[in-house]
């Protein structure tokens, strides 16, 4: 049994009085223990929605309208709020984008860490502090003992994100969901933080769902990749395999559009148009208006995800490799 198994997940938001729009339109996903998955897509593709759904955090009036999320065989969607709390922040931790927003500005780092621990464990204050210092050292925060009494504003952005990671690790989770953990940080700090997350996941055999728009970061950190477009997974597979030979025209277009791949003075490949909002999805494959391979079939039917690629006209082996 897979550690996490998501089947046919739909998330819907009401539109007007009677109708609904779907932010996720049937996503399937399995994750084994210790596996690192990258979820890639543009804004509005539904990648954060997926993370929120796993933790039962979809805000009203949105709801999971269909599907199941099994964590060790137990459907998270059927758990009571009390039971989900024993999993959320405990066995599944989350790291969000902006550490300044994640951390409470009026509480010291130590208070916030002890609070997290005490929510999930019966532990004395002294022991909790000791554990917090150990975790701060694990994420390489210099002079960890004194930092415990510091407030978030006294730390730099990189150190703050390290604190957030230390908090996420406090309860020894089996899965960490990281939603754009380095987008608010500088490149050198991003490299530090991603290297740290990668090391911690490897050392402790923690699974990771890394949500990002940055294909470079995904390539560095994850083993498997899931590319999302307009609420659906369009391509999934081994990270390096997809990066070297994408089969879905959207994945191929995204990769070709990266400036790394174009020589200097040459034009970048560009995907025409932009992703449609979920309120105005075209019929059939949502990507067809931007796709140069689209035919009438693409306008009528949604292509199923087969062999890791949801496309009626995928790139063949030679096209994909070029």
């Amino acid at each position: 049994m897979a550690m996490l198994e998501i089947k046919d997940l739909h998330v819907a938001f009401p539109k007007g009085k009677k109708s609904e729009v779907e932010a996720l339109r049937g996503v399937n996903l399995t994750l084994e223990k210790g596996e690192r998955l990258g979820v890639v897509g543009e804004s509005g593709a539904g990648k954060s929605m997926l993370a929120f759904a796993i933790l039962n955090l979809i805000a009203e009036p949105g709801r999971v309208s269909q599907g199941s999320i099994a964590f060790h065989g137990e459907n998270l969607l059927e758990l009571s709020e009390r039971d989900i709390r024993s999993i959320r922040g405990n066995r599944i931790s989350m790291i969000f984008q902006d550490p300044m927003v994640t951390l409470n500005p009026v509480l010291s780092i130590g208070t916030q860490m002890v609070e997290t621990l005490k929510a999930h464990r019966r532990i004395s204050d002294a022991e909790a502090r000791k554990l917090c210092i150990a975790k701060l050292k694990e994420v390489a925060i210099p002079s960890a003992e004194s930092r415990l009494d510091a407030y978030p504003h006294e730390l730099s952005g990189g150190l703050r994100q390290r604190v957030v990671i230390a908090i996420a690790l406090l309860t020894d989770p089996e899965l960490i969901i990281a939603d754009e953990p380095t987008t608010a940080l500088d490149v050198t700090i991003q490299a530090e933080i991603m290297a740290l997350i990668l090391k911690l996941c490897r050392d402790k055999d923690v699974a990771l769902i890394l949500i990002t728009h940055d294909l470079g970061v995904v390539a560095e950190v994850t083993e498997r990749i899931m590319i999302m477009y307009a609420g659906l997974c369009v391509e999934t597979g081994a990270t390096q395999q997809i990066i070297q030979a994408p089969h879905h025209p959207y994945s191929a277009g995204l990769l070709k559009a990266l400036p790394q791949f174009a020589g200097r003075g040459t034009r970048l490949y560009q995907i025409p148009g932009s992703m449609p909002p979920i309120t105005a999805l075209p019929p059939g494959c949502a990507y067809h208006p931007r796709c140069e391979r689209a035919t009438d079939m693409c306008k009528a039917q949604i292509p199923p995800l087969e062999h890791g690629c949801a496309c009626f006209h995928p790139l063949d082996q030679t096209e994909a490799a070029s």
Binding site: A140, I141, P142, G158, L159, R162, T188, I189, Q190, A191, E192, M194, A195, L196, L198, K199, D214, L215, G216, V217, A219, E220, V221, T239, Q240, I243, L258, Q260
Partner: peptide
């Protein structure tokens, strides 16, 4: 980050 991977394999000191 390199598309071929491998450059985040070693931990980096906080700068």
């Amino acid at each position: 980050p390199k598309i071929e991977g491998g450059s985040f394999d070693n931990p980096r000191e906080p700068g």
